[in-house]
Design a protein around this nucleic acid. Structure first.
Length: 515
RNA sequence: GGCCGCGUAGCCAAGUGGAAAGGCAAGGGCCUGCAAAGCCUUGAUUCGUCGGUUCGAAUCCGACCGCGGCCUCCA
């Protein structure tokens, strides 16, 4: 639902093309069209993909929170040489192979809390429109056919290079390392690129005016964005490695075929995910050739889903982020802290006589936390409205959680400085604000007991002790403590610590967690 | 060679012209039978180096050093 006061907030977004941050002014008031380049589905997703789609999920959630109606389009490139090659290796049908990896993609994204886009078109379902755009480009003189291939004539498009801030002559000078391929002979300019590629009769393909063939790599995004968002739209996103040539070519195609420019008002490009090299400790780009590659699946097997999402939001989206065990563990710890805060708030509310689902208690914010609570949402929104400063947003959320813990301590003290009504009112206010912020970032969406248990059990995976054994030891220690046999009680604690298990004594029992 | 970007405490990370957010780790304290968790508290006279602009710069300009990305498929 639109929130009138929030909708007035100006959202500023960086735009790669102009190289500056500028206000989001939707072409259609109150409606934002956003196209995010999807994956080529020939393998499992990696953590770099995860970063992109988690981020744009947050963009969508936040804009909707502000009251915008967002149309989010994310494609699947299911026709591509890499898919065809992979299918040849495995003996699969290319479209069946890509369909399988679309399912894998969806599984990963669902685990990360990434919601489906409004439209998720596939290349194989847009062949007619792709052929049409090719014909338009040929008619308008921007493309030419050579022996069943269709190429885009880059010299014909005046603005070629305006996104990546380079010009054709400079690029030509620097292309010494490029490998030649047979298609180069057919091209009129080395940077001309394929809009349509001829296929062998037994290869994946479709009938076209130029014979049996398949689309080139860039054309599908121009076609799909036009189809679902119109000729021009507000936000176009993807990894920064797509700036050239993919997005540059998209602009060339769309702006030449349609009569609208700029194609997108805001080009938002994600920093890449780096890893620390095991050999020399240097940061390097994650890539298959360096064998430092992390699939989303592997990471999710080892770390809590939400911790992975949290980690991906700890750095600003335009900066690179380094994947490391330390960083993931720290993110896990923060997620645990946030849920433990919700747990503590729940305990204190129970102690104050409130049960979950009760109507809001009447009261006033306790003085010590009042400014933190009232200032929370404005600060949180301001952080995200400033080119999605998620680091700042998480810091603000952390401050709120701290206020919650402060209050929880207050409630537990012998002489609370506030009335039970005000304390309860304040606790509920903090809890609801935390959940609200969580729903925008896509975190804190689980019941705390469930989240804490899942994190705990995941960590226990590589420990040589089971929850049952831990519970037995806790029971034995309880007995010892009742008998004031602290020596035995401490011995049990030490034994558990050796297994990486920490005990936390509460008034009502003993909790444990894995470190 | 061209283009884009980065270099902030032991580590992660915001800030980009007007008193250096936040987190992790570390020290001290409260709490606890002891702990853990939580809370409080300490910590960059300083933001790669050297110059310049300015009343004032981590923030702008220049040079230099170091690092990364793109220019070939890539999120």
């Amino acid at each position: 639902m639109a929130n009138d006061s929030a909708a007035l907030r100006t959202v500023e977004l960086y735009d790669t093309r102009e190289g500056r941050q500028k206000p989001l002014e939707p072409r259609q008031s109150g409606h934002v069209g956003m196209y995010v380049c999807g994956v080529t589905v020939y393998d499992l997703t990696h953590i770099g993909h995860a970063r992109v789609y988690v981020f744009f999920d947050v963009v969508e959630r936040f804009l909707e929170h502000l009251g915008y109606d967002v149309t989010h389009v994310r494609n699947f490139t299911d026709v591509d040489d890499k898919i065809i090659n992979r299918a040849e290796e495995t003996g699969d049908d290319p479209l069946e192979l890509s369909a399988r990896f679309i399912e894998e993609f969806n599984e990963d994204m669902s685990a990360l809390g990434v919601r489906h886009a409004d439209h998720e078109p596939k290349v194989s379902e847009c062949i007619d429109e792709i052929i049409e755009m090719n014909e338009t480009l040929i008619e308008r003189g921007y493309a030419y056919e050579v022996d069943g291939d269709v190429f885009y004539r880059v010299e014909e498009f005046d603005g070629y290079g305006k996104l990546s801030h380079r010009d054709l002559d400079e690029m030509e000078a620097g292309r010494s390392g490029r490998t030649e391929d047979e298609a180069d002979d057919k091209k009129k300019h080395p940077f001309d690129f394929a809009l349509w590629k001829s296929s062998e009769d037994d290869e994946l393909g479709w009938e076209s005016p130029w014979g049996w063939g398949r689309p080139g790599w860039h054309i599908e995004c121009s076609v799909m964005s036009t189809k679902f968002l119109g000729e021009c739209f507000d936000i176009h996103g993807g990894g920064s490695d797509l700036i050239f040539p993919h997005h540059e070519n998209e602009i060339a195609q769309s702006e030449a075929a349609n009569d609208c420019e700029p194609l997108a008002n805001h080009w938002m490009h994600m920093g890449l995910v780096n890893v620390v090299s095991e050999e020399d400790d240097e940061v390097e780009k994650m890539s298959k050739s360096l064998d430092n590659f992390w699939t989303t699946r592997d990471v999710l097997d080892e770390f809590d889903n939400e911790a992975v999402r949290y980690f991906l939001l700890t750095a600003h989206y335009r900066k690179p982020i380094t994947y490391s065990m330390d960083n993931l563990e720290e993110a896990t710890q923060r997620v645990e802290y946030l849920y433990a805060t919700l747990e503590r708030i729940g305990e204190r509310l129970t102690q104050l006589g409130h049960t979950e689902g009760d109507s809001l208690p009447d009261g006033e914010l306790v003085g010590s936390v009042a400014s933190t609570v009232t200032g929370f949402l404005p600060k949180f929104e301001a952080a995200l409205a400033d080119d999605f400063n998620t680091s700042e947003a998480l810091a603000v959320l952390g401050d709120l959680a701290k206020a919650g813990n402060e209050l929880a301590t207050e409630v537990g003290s012998t002489n609370p400085n506030a009335s039970p009504e005000d304390l309860a009112f304040s606790l509920v206010a903090i809890e609801s604000h935390m959940r609200k912020a969580g729903s925008i970032l896509g975190v804190l969406e689980r019941p705390y007991a469930e989240a804490l248990r899942e994190i705990r059990n995941l960590k226990l995976q590589d420990r040589d002790i089971t929850p049952e054994e831990i519970e037995e030891l806790i029971a034995e220690r309880k007995e010892a403590r009742a008998n004031e046999d602290y020596e035995r009680a401490d011995a049990i604690r030490d034994e558990l610590v050796d297994h990486g298990i920490e005990l936390m004594d509460k008034d009502w029992g003993t909790l444990w967690r894995a470190r």
